[in-house]
Nucleic acid binder design. Structure first.
Length: 286
DNA sequence: TTCAATGTTTAGAC
DNA sequence: GGTCTAAACATTGA
């Protein structure tokens, strides 16, 4: 479930393993997954060395030594799997094609590296994409992205300030607006609002300073906690480096409609907000 | 068969 | 321009 924590998790794993590798080949199984013709794609990509793996919001960036950038967005069901011999690193969408061989029917793009390892981009719904961009194109693409919620200067006042120009917006929808704050998706928006006891359909202009503070710190807390548990992603190292956590079991409201709230005697309700399933407790969220 | 699903973008209405 | 809704992208699974 690729929101910020899942992206952060796979980025950390890939940074440890991909840095320094040279891209030797790239196979394309779904044309629309990339932004170039395969010919141009290969021409600019093959022979390039990966110098760094990082993220901005939910987007994954592989810096290449030739100066270009390979940007990956997993959207809802994208998944990255890096394989070297018996070692497997899985990030993004929780397992599709578990136990299957690679590539599988959901594989869209495949890279092979000079050490024999491979990177698979799999995506059930085909919403995800990979784009090879120049530095200028990358900079332009990132101009409309909002503040990073885990950055030091993100707090109640900052959150209130960046949402200032959409006073009538419902707070949950405002949290999902990537041009204001990046990284928060449907699940963590519900979780953060539950933790800060704020109803998802409250208006931005209506929130008090104390609530902004509670909300901003809830966002940080939820994201950090999820990263600690490696997100809701399925991830495992087949060569044995220990069991990996799963944040799904730590969710407090998402997916719990009809069940009792963990905080009060209320019942968790579900309704549609901006077309998205929205969970909240009628007992303690105001 | 119908509906909902982790994300964004776009079009249209008010 | 702000805000809301629906639709689009495409597929799976309940």
């Amino acid at each position: 479930m690729p929101e910020l924590p899942e992206v952060e998790t796979i980025v950390r794993d890939l940074e440890l393993n991909l840095s320094g590798l040279k891209i030797e080949s790239s196979r394309l199984l779904y044309d629309k997954a990339i932004n170039l013709d395969l010919k141009d794609w290969r021409k600019r990509l093959l022979g390039q060395k990966i110098t760094k793996v990082w993220r901005r919001g939910k987007q994954i960036i592989l810096s290449l030594d030739g100066g270009d950038f390979l940007v990956i967005h997993l959207k809802m069901t994208g998944q990255l799997i890096w394989q070297k011999n018996h070692k497997l690193i899985v990030g993004g969408h929780p397992i599709i094609g578990a136990g299957q061989t690679l590539p599988n029917k959901f594989s869209r793009v495949i890279f092979s590296f000079n050490d024999g390892s491979q990177l698979f981009f799999n995506d059930v719904r085909k919403f995800g994409w990979l784009k090879l961009l120049t530095a200028d194109e990358l900079a332009k693409k990132f101009t409309n992205l909002g503040v990073e919620p885990l950055s030091r200067d993100f707090d109640g006042q900052k959150l209130k300030a960046v949402l200032k120009n959409k006073p009538k917006s419902k707070i949950k929808l405002a949290l999902l607006d990537q041009s204001k704050v990046v990284g928060i998706g449907n699940i963590y928006a519900d979780e953060a609002l539950w933790l800060s006891r704020i109803k998802p359909d409250r208006r931005v202009a209506d929130l008090k300073n104390k609530e902004w503070q509670a909300l901003a710190s809830a966002v940080k807390k939820i994201l950090r906690l999820s990263i600690k548990y490696r997100g809701t992603s399925f991830s495992d190292y087949r060569d044995a480096s220990g069991a990996k956590g799963n944040f799904i079991s730590h969710l407090k409201v998402y997916g719990r409609a009809g069940q009792p709230c963990y905080n009060c005697q209320g019942i968790v309700k579900k309704f549609k907000l901006g077309g998205r399933g929205t969970h909240w407790c009628e007992g303690c969220q105001r």
